[in-house]
Design a protein around this nucleic acid. Structure first.
Length: 200
DNA sequence: GGCCAGGTGTAAA
DNA sequence: TTTACACATGGC
């Protein structure tokens, strides 16, 4: 049966899916590490991303990361796959962030979805992950888990923005603007955990 | 051994 | 504008 976005959000809340998760679900939300993990997790399991992140210990903030040698970065992120394309894209992205925003804090405050989508390696999903979990913005992430869950309720659209609008619109009307970043962050997190725990 | 995973960019139709 | 394909490791 079809449900509204709010009904799905409340349905997921009853399942206590985020009991063992970080406060905003994505590990180390609000840090530059999220930018890295957003790209590393593209078409890759999170367990493989964790191996790469461990190899990057000490280089997970913007200033240290940009100083990494490309070949060294490739070696470190090998476990999460596609390292020949992810390494140069990550380095270029980090350099562009420094060049355009000077600091990661400025980036969090000032970056736009449009700027992110102009970066090689950042598509719609990664842009929204970075906005939501790295920058604390009110952006709802749509991924394969999201589409799978909605499909189980008989809900299907033919493009990313349609999914995003469906998920965001009703919650925007129901909750205050200040509450939305956290609500969208947890909503997406619950959707992923619900898939992993096969709870629907 | 084959299939899939918290996608994206590019080229060809 | 849509579709097909490359990219790569690790777990089941």
């Amino acid at each position: 049966m079809k449900k509204s976005a709010l009904a799905i959000y409340e349905f997921l809340q009853t399942k206590e899916l985020l009991r063992d998760s970080p406060a905003l679900w994505w590990p180390n939300a609000g840090t530059f590490e999220v930018v890295i993990s957003a790209l590393l997790t593209q078409n890759t399991t999170w367990s493989n991303v964790e191996k790469s992140l461990k190899n990057l210990e000490g280089f997970l903030d913007l200033e240290c990361f940009v100083a990494l040698d490309e070949n060294s970065l490739k070696e470190r992120i090998k476990p999460s796959g596609f390292y020949n394309q992810k390494a140069p894209r990550l380095l270029q992205l980090a350099k562009n962030i420094q060049e355009h925003f000077k600091t990661f804090e400025n980036f969090q405050k000032d970056v736009s979805r449009k700027w992110l989508l102009e970066q090689k390696g950042i598509g719609k999903e990664s842009a929204d992950v970075i906005l939501c979990y790295a920058c604390g913005r009110d952006a709802m992430v749509v991924d394969s888990y999201t589409k799978r869950l909605l499909q189980s309720f008989g809900i299907e659209f033919n493009n990313y923005e349609a999914y995003q609008l469906f998920l965001e619109k009703e919650l925007r009307q129901h909750y205050s603007q200040e509450a939305l970043p956290k609500i969208f962050a947890l909503f997406h997190g619950m959707i992923v955990e619900c898939n992993k725990k096969k709870c629907f």
